[in-house]
Design a protein around this nucleic acid. Structure first.
Length: 794
RNA sequence: GCCGGGGUGGCGGAACUGGUCAGACGCGCCCGACUUAAAAUCGGGUGACUUCGGUCAUGCGGGUUCGAGUCCCGCCCCCGGCACCA
């Protein structure tokens, strides 16, 4: 018997699979009969970092690989593509730092990672590889943008946006962590800038619903996480009149039942009312306060504010309320103005205390309205509706819903991204580049260094272009798109990657999508995952596809940590697979990363544990060789060993496919191999060895393929996935547990089909039980069929 | 504060619908075999206490039940998300 040497067998089998095109799955022929047994296995596409992959990637893609293998072999048609989220800041920053073109750096990184992936032996259909920086891809990113523009779901406006002073660009709300840039850690500033937005708020309500296909499911933390982020509040918009200025100020409130308790009125520092009408003192305050970030404002212990010099009239009782400007009111939520009810709102209460403003209670401890005119005595819940109805009749209010979610600003003042296909013309305004002129190719520039405006603006030759409408002089849009635009639709390009007439064919996407199982980090919950859902809903409304959710099932892998923190470049604790693959082999690394613990929980990377997996693989190697030499070719299939085989088969299949639990199957196969070890000549040893190899194949495909040939077979990768025989899962005997007062006093094997009376008789016959009963009377006897007998005495 | 997820040996963890003295599988550790020796490999042991009969053990305190890691109530702690959102 030769030794287990992964470095010998792994490259060999990788070549075999490639030559056999083992994992290339073509799309169905047009007009092919429908089939239900197809599966779209997807993991979040990698960013081609200069550091290559780390163990988090290995976990992510190995999980997808295990599902892919099992589904394939269980007779499903499985598509499992791969590609590159190739645009983005790190490559551009590397180009600035080290010289070279971001494209060269990116493509070099892609080559490195692709080689790492191939070395790990993942079952990927490389024919479908796409990269977001390829003009053949971003042509369609631009094309899709133009569709959003046509439908009014992409627009340009001036708004306060998150500005990263270090990266010199705007970043999205979802990628700010504690007020800092997720990528570089710099403190985010608010800036008023003219930016491109996607109108994600148009789908706020729909995004809160999860319109998943039958069998689909998202983890609770994901659906509730997105719902919290979207933040829907039901209430009313109510108009307060400023008589002396002859204008109305709308407020949004969730508590119209407290309207009679309003004692003052507050506008946000950025509110247009301040600049237009407030006292100079109030304007001074607003200028100062408005520059502060939300986090700074929230951290203030004392409320601050200034009276504007004007009064607003409460529409329910005509009371004149002083209008203050204060920074605890936010311009970008609701209407940027509030009616202040200090008795029933904590913040208003603090403000009233600080500035000695009146407090009026209008709801008593029983939830009943008091001091509220004709609404006195009404329950708050009823009053909410009644007051809004009344105001509606007066034309001073209406039911309204407010969201926390804001539109997605997606223009970036950087070079390495998808150009926005827009031309500005003095006479025609904002002019879309015609479809037939796409792609707008990203040109070269001399200097990528951001200087507060987009580097593309420095390429005069590119910037100056004839207006597509009037032919007059025009200037191109110099901002590029957020990379999350690319990743909002890449999973649809994967299934039709070479289409040069459209981003994808509707029949093809409708066949494969929604994605059957999407695996990726929860850090993208309110970014990528939300944007992708927005894209799919919009594209469905455009008539481009026939579904409304991109991902039927979602799974978030835990973080692979080192030293107690998530692996990341900024932490400097990245561990890649290469050294371990070289030392232990890809199979051991793959199996170990899944064996470490529940895949959805964080795990601490440690090298010591991998030894256990290597020992297991060696034990399997040896056992299989011994079986191949000694075991009878045919077994009866009825031995205890055979039963273990069936039980293990059932467990592995159920754990992975139903429970998404990837570590316990390995334990189960270890137990099987342990039982086989030293019993190579047992009756069903060959059956056990073959099944063990077969079950281990999704985890450790190279050694499995090799051992499969040792057992005299070929092409395990397409060999049907084992199916447990239900008859063999049922047992002929079981271990009867006999308890006295709930404590186990004896246990012994009995036949499976005994009646309850027979079980009780056997239990009573036990000496150990008799010793415990010892004369005491049995008050109650509980029999659980096929499990236990419990005597209650006393 | 609100929402979500957790708390089990020295460590990672198992126990899927309340039912096999809870602790599978692996790591680590201990003992043994092989070896001149070590590594590797193989075999055995490994929750705590114990008067060796047992007793106590799944964050803490109660409860339901013949029986609770699992269900209910009340706490404590940890992790993640949201948060001056009206």
């Amino acid at each position: 018997m030769n030794r287990y040497e992964p470095e010998q067998i792994e490259p060999k089998w990788q070549r075999v699979w490639e030559e056999a095109r083992a994992f290339n799955v073509p799309n169905p022929e047009p007009g092919a009969p429908p089939d239900d047994r197809h599966w779209y296995q997807l993991e979040m596409l990698p960013y081609p970092s200069g550091n290559g992959m780390h163990m988090g990637h290995v976990l992510n893609y190995t999980m997808g690989d295990v599902v892919t293998h099992i589904r394939r072999r269980a007779g499903w048609k499985v598509v499992r593509p791969m590609g590159w989220d190739a645009f983005g800041l790190p490559a551009e920053n590397a180009a600035i730092r080290e010289g070279g073109h971001p494209r060269e750096i990116t493509e070099r990184n892609i080559a490195t990672i692709r080689a790492q992936m191939k070395r790990l032996g993942w079952a990927i259909d490389w024919d479908r590889e796409v990269s977001s920086h390829d003009p053949a891809f971003y042509r369609w990113t631009q094309w899709l943008f133009l569709r959003f523009l046509e439908h009014g779901l992409a627009y340009r406006r001036e708004a306060p946006v998150n500005w990263c002073p270090n990266d010199q660009t705007v970043i999205a709300d979802a990628y700010i962590v504690d007020g800092h840039c997720e990528r570089c850690g710099a403190l985010i500033e608010l800036r008023n800038m003219t930016q491109w937005f996607f109108k994600t708020t148009a789908y706020a309500d729909e995004l809160r619903e999860f319109d998943l296909p039958p069998g689909g499911s998202w983890p609770d933390r994901s659906t509730t996480g997105q719902r919290n982020w979207i933040g829907r509040s039901e209430g009313a918009e109510i108009l307060f009149r400023v008589e002396e200025l002859d204008l109305d100020l709308p407020v949004f409130t969730t508590r119209p039942d407290t309207l009679f308790g309003a004692t003052f009125f507050v506008v946000a520092p950025e509110h247009p009312f301040v600049e237009a009408h407030a006292s100079s003192e109030a304007q001074e305050y607003a200028k100062h306060a408005g520059a502060k970030r939300t986090e700074e404002r929230a951290a203030e212990t004392e409320k601050t504010g200034v009276f504007t010099g004007h009064y607003a009239t409460n529409p329910v009782d005509g009371e004149r309320l002083p209008i203050w400007v204060a920074d605890y009111v936010l311009m970008d939520y609701g209407t940027g103005a509030i009616m202040a009810v200090p008795a029933h709102d904590e913040r208003d209460g603090e403000f009233a205390e600080t500035f000695d403003l009146p407090v009026r209670t209008v709801i008593d401890e029983h939830g009943v309205l008091v001091d509220s005119g004709r609404f006195d005595g009404m329950l708050a819940d009823e009053a909410r509706r009644a007051i809004v109805d009344w105001l509606h009749e007066l034309g001073r209010g209406a039911p309204a819903i407010s969201y926390r979610l804001r539109d997605w600003s997606f223009s970036r003042q950087r070079y390495w991204g998808c150009p926005i296909p827009i031309v500005y013309c003095d006479s025609c305004g904002i002019v879309p580049v015609p479809d037939e002129d796409l792609p707008v190719i990203l040109p070269d520039v001399e200097d990528y260094q951001p200087k507060g405006k987009a580097p593309l603006a420095s390429n005069e030759e590119w910037m100056n272009v004839a207006c597509p409408t009037c032919g007059g002089p025009g200037r191109r849009e110099a901002d590029t798109m957020d990379t999350f635009v690319d990743s909002s639709w890449y999973f649809m390009r994967y299934v039709d990657p070479h289409n040069d007439r459209a981003p994808f064919d509707r029949g093809v996407v409708d066949y494969w999508l929604p994605v059957s199982l999407y695996i990726g980090g929860i850090d993208h919950l309110n970014g990528h995952l939300l944007y992708s859902r927005f894209f799919v809903k919009a594209l469905n409304d455009f008539g481009m596809l026939g579904f409304r959710e991109p991902f039927a099932r979602l799974f978030h892998q835990g973080w692979v940590q080192l030293g107690g923190t998530k692996m990341s470049k900024t932490k400097g604790n990245l561990v890649g697979p290469e050294d371990f693959v070289a030392e232990y082999g890809a199979d051991a690394v793959r199996t170990y990363i899944l064996f470490m613990g529940p895949a959805d929980q964080d795990m601490e990377w440690s090298e010591s544990g991998i030894e256990g997996i290597v020992r297991f693989l060696r034990r399997l190697w040896r056992a299989v060789h011994e079986v191949a030499e000694h075991a009878p070719a045919e077994g009866s299939g009825t031995t205890d060993l055979a039963r273990t085989v069936h039980r293990t088969t059932a467990k592995v299949t159920d754990d992975v496919l139903r429970r998404f639990q990837f570590h316990t199957p390995i334990s189960a196969v270890m137990e099987l191999v342990n039982e086989l070890t030293g019993n190579a000549d047992a009756e069903d040893a060959r059956f056990a060895a073959e099944t063990a190899v077969s079950l281990v194949q999704p985890y450790a495909p190279h050694i499995a393929e090799e051992l499969w040939t040792v057992l005299g077979h070929e092409r395990l990768w397409e060999h049907p996935w084992p199916v447990a025989d239900p008859a063999m899962l049922a047992q002929e005997t079981f271990e009867l547990v006999v308890q006295v007062n709930g404590k186990v006093r004896d246990r012994f094997e009995v036949a499976f089909d005994l009646t309850e009376d027979e079980l009780v008789a056997l239990a009573l016959a036990s000496e150990r039980v008799q010793a415990r009963l010892d004369g005491a009377s049995v008050r109650k006897t509980i029999v659980v069929p096929r499990k236990l007998v419990n005597f209650v005495v006393g």
